[in-house]
Design a protein around this nucleic acid. Structure first.
Lengths: 199, 199, 199, 199
DNA sequence: TAATAAGCGAGACGGTACGTCGGGTCTTCAC
DNA sequence: GTGAAGACCCGACGTACCGTCTCGCTTATTA
């Protein structure tokens, strides 16, 4: 018999929820992820601490959701990669854009914060894959499948592996700051990947 | 003219230094990186807190050095990859070993802790590359160079890129827990890499 | 316009307040004023340090209030000196009692602690005079006024000065440990005082 | 069998001793007795902490000696009260001077510090009486004895008690800040005392 | 005249307490 | 009857000093 009084989602204040996520997002940008505190979020959002604890299990969860919301806003809803018929050109376009995004300081802080959460909390990692990475990967794989049908990619290529080879080096270079995120590097990754998986 | 009174390294107690690093290492394994506190390290090491603050700028730096010391002890000094003449076999051996290490819970906690530090602190990232990753990468590149001379790898291949393609996907899968670290996955990465960079 | 967020007295926990004062009082008796620490008081009272810092500005203030509370409890409320009509006898009774109290080790430690606070902090000195010394002095002066009306004391005597002459030597002898606090000394002070202020 | 290696006074550095006492005295005036630390004294005096601990048992002892030295310097050596033949005038002169000294902020801090030490440490209290208060009291009693011989004071008066009555009220008023230290108050105390002890 | 031992400056060390920040829980009051 | 406000207990922070303990380096006898 559980005594845990669960809050009633129907009564939840949308106003508070939004203010909290917005405050979290703003604070990450201002003081850095490590120094964001629940108290500061509550104060900034004009909200009692309890209201945060009622609806989120941890600071990480709030931060995670605030950034997730941001990303989902940006996308709008549907995600699709360009398809001009020229796989190499399309991929280079996307990879260069990805590299530029990672290099943009305005994106760096929140994405880094999000990554920290994922790394430390398997539960959040699962949510991340389900809600953010999954759909994006599906979009990418759709483009790759079209390429396979067009004979530009080995028909038996494991598309997850293709994505791994394509994105992981860029991601790691960003995360570890082990080198510059140049358009040339983006291009090189596309070249390598296409060479490895050509029909 | 700096007023900062810097401690005199000549007077530093080797006994304390060692006890602190050892305590840090032990605590990471026991309670997880996030819950390690300077107080706990000091208490465990039988040391005053000031002795930690005197020699390290942050908890991260202590943790970083404790794990670095651990890794360097393990290596002994010289690092060299096996060279049987069969590049594919040699790489698969190494990659399978790497995958197994990442999968080992005893290694997971400290390496994850180390990674968090690197991600958050560019200064530590630089130290990491210089003192740990650099030498290892050099050893790997030495093996790859031998393969180039033997005509098993494209002579003009950028060896840093080869390493990126080889290791990054494994590293990312481990960090994000986005899939199992199986020997098969290790093998697949070797296959992909060799295909991409064959002569 | 002050930004200092002042705590709300209405929400104050009477339970904590009482536990803190009691713990302070006990510790003074056990380890001596100088060695009492806020940490020890908090631990003994089962209270967070912040709860002490929220309501008192300094260790001195806590100690002061704890002893003040003790004294006020002891008094009950109304204070009155004996009045048998024989001024000399009445004063000797009171002075001997005072001397005995100062000589009692159980009273010595806290009163000495209180005195230290008063000496060092003019603010506390003012509080002391208002809340403790003032009422007592009034009671004493009431007895002296009765004596004046009975013609046992000069009608124009400055009663504050009378009290000074009567009590100060005893107080100083106690504080400086410059001599024993005997009944004879108490009597001698009464004799001197009456001689100086006889009609 | 004591292992305690006692320092050899013959080898003591007069230079250090003087610098320490001077630093202590200066710091009391600057930051107040409570905030003076051994570390600060050592730093100010350009002396190692050990040199202080070698020669003094406690902070109190250093402070005590520093002020004692100050007072003894001021006196020069011989102390004697004025003797014009008019006891009342002589005493009023002295008492007014004493009141003025207590009221002078430059004297207040060190004397208050000295008093704190005496109050808290019976050992220092004894030293104080022997080295400072004793000689002064003797000088005062010498003047009073002359007055007795001149028939201006009761021949059987207890001179220690006379001094108590004369000085204690002033001292207490200063210590407790319970009233202003005016010349009028000084005069009143002389009047009262002479009335109480007239022949 | 050397050696030897003490005092000395400096400051690292194991500790205790400081006063502050923030975590997560609980209660009170206004809307 | 939610939610703001914020007091509460608690744990950790980074700092200041405590008193002890080496270090080299003068000095100043003693062999």
């Amino acid at each position: 018999m559980s005594d845990a009084r669960k809050p009633d989602p129907a009564r939840r204040s949308e106003r508070s929820r939004h203010a909290i996520l917005e405050a979290a997002r703003a604070l990450i940008g201002e003081v850095g992820y490590g120094k964001v505190s629940i108290e500061a979020i509550a104060a900034r959002a004009g909200v009692g601490k309890q209201t945060i604890y009622r609806w989120w299990p941890s600071k990480g969860a709030v931060v995670f959701e605030s950034i997730l919301a941001l990303s989902q806003d940006a996308e709008g809803g549907e995600v699709a990669l360009p398809d001009t018929g020229d796989l190499e050109a399309d991929l280079k376009l996307v990879m260069r854009a990805t590299a530029a995004e990672f290099a943009d300081p305005a994106f760096d802080a929140p994405i880094r914060a999000l990554t920290m959460e994922i790394v430390n909390d398997p539960g959040l990692a699962a949510q991340y894959h389900e809600r953010l990475a999954g759909p994006l990967d599906e979009a990418k794989k759709a483009r790759l499948r079209a390429a396979q049908e067009a004979g530009q990619l080995a028909a038996d290529a494991d598309l997850d592996l293709v994505l791994d080879v394509l994105y992981s080096p860029l991601h790691r270079r960003w995360l570890h700051r082990s080198g510059p995120l140049t358009p040339e590097y983006a291009d090189a990754l596309v070249d390598v990947t296409l060479r490895a998986f050509r029909p």
